[in-house]
Simulated scan of single mutants.
Amino acid sequence: MAAADDKLTIELSVPELRAVAGYAVACARPALAIFERVRPDDRRPRAAIDAAQVFVDGAKRSKAIRDGAWAAHRAYQETRDAGQAAASDAARAAVAAASAAFLHPLAKATQVLHILGSAAHAARAFELDAGDDRNVGADYIERARGLADPTVVGVLMRYPYAPSGGGRAGELLRRLDASLRSLDG
């Protein structure tokens, strides 16, 4: 679906939300090593991912997930402001992983960020960590493609295509979006 009415809602079951959050966690977790190398005493991104994992494992969505996402967002801002770009994108991957548990059932392109944002930001973190090597990011997007199970792809297909913008992470997100949608056809 190329465009959608913002008033349209999408049916999402709890098992589907758990699958999407599990995918987001799996995509974000490897980038923690980049963040923790730069800020070894800052556990906020890890705590956000761990809180999302608790939901994936069967708990209810909780305030701990939202609080973890906000804390990881502050870590993102701090590393961004300190010029630690790779760590910053790694923290954004953690924010996106926690946010995936709160995917909204609105037919809006921005919701694709909840599904694929952790993969795109992790890919960008790996690119930046490798001296802005775009091949590294492209390779990570291929890895993320392989992590998506049919449930994740099925949920993605109910949403409009990923939005424009977002810099290089946005490009990576759109590449992954197009790649996953091709699996459904």
Rank of each mutant, 00 (worst) to 15 (best):
A75Q: 03
A87E: 08
L106Y: 13
V38F: 01
V155W: 06
A72G: 13
D132F: 09
W70A: 15
A162R: 07
I49H: 02
A123G: 04
G154W: 05
A47T: 15
D6A: 09
A69F: 04
D50H: 09
M1S: 02
I10M: 04
V38D: 02
A85W: 08
A64M: 07
D133Q: 12
V155I: 11
A96P: 07
R74L: 12
Q53A: 15
D42N: 11
L17S: 02
A101D: 02
A26W: 06
S164V: 14
A109W: 03
D184M: 11
A122W: 07
A48E: 03
G58V: 12
G137T: 14
A19D: 04
L128N: 00
L128S: 00
A144G: 03
A85I: 13
D42I: 12
P160W: 01
A91K: 11
D41C: 12
V54K: 00
R43N: 13
D41P: 00
R168C: 10
R175W: 06
S182W: 06
D149P: 10
S118N: 12
A148S: 00
Q84F: 07
E36W: 09
Y161K: 02
A125Y: 05
A162W: 07
P160N: 05
A51D: 09
S88E: 11
I141E: 03
P15I: 06
A24M: 13
A26V: 11
D149G: 15
A48K: 04
S88Y: 05
I65S: 01
G165M: 11
A86K: 09
D89Q: 14
A86P: 03
A51L: 09
A33R: 10
K60S: 13
A48H: 06
A96W: 11
A144Q: 03
A85V: 15
R145F: 08
Y76C: 08
E11N: 12
E16A: 10
A123I: 14
V112Y: 00
D184E: 12
A47Y: 04
Y159V: 06
W70R: 15
E36I: 13
L17D: 00
G22N: 05
R181C: 05
L172R: 11
L147G: 06
S164I: 12
K108E: 14
G185C: 08
R134C: 00
A21C: 12
G68W: 08
A87T: 13
P30Q: 03
A178K: 10
V14Y: 00
R29D: 04
G166I: 14
F55D: 10
Y23M: 10
R134A: 10
Y140H: 14
G58T: 14
V56S: 00
L173I: 11
A98P: 09
G83T: 10
A3D: 05
E142G: 13
A96R: 12
L147W: 07
A138H: 13
V153K: 02
V112R: 02
G165R: 09
V38P: 00
A148N: 01
Q53C: 07
V38C: 00
L172P: 04
A33M: 09
A47K: 12
Y140G: 06
A2M: 08
D177W: 10
G68Y: 02
R37P: 13
A4M: 12
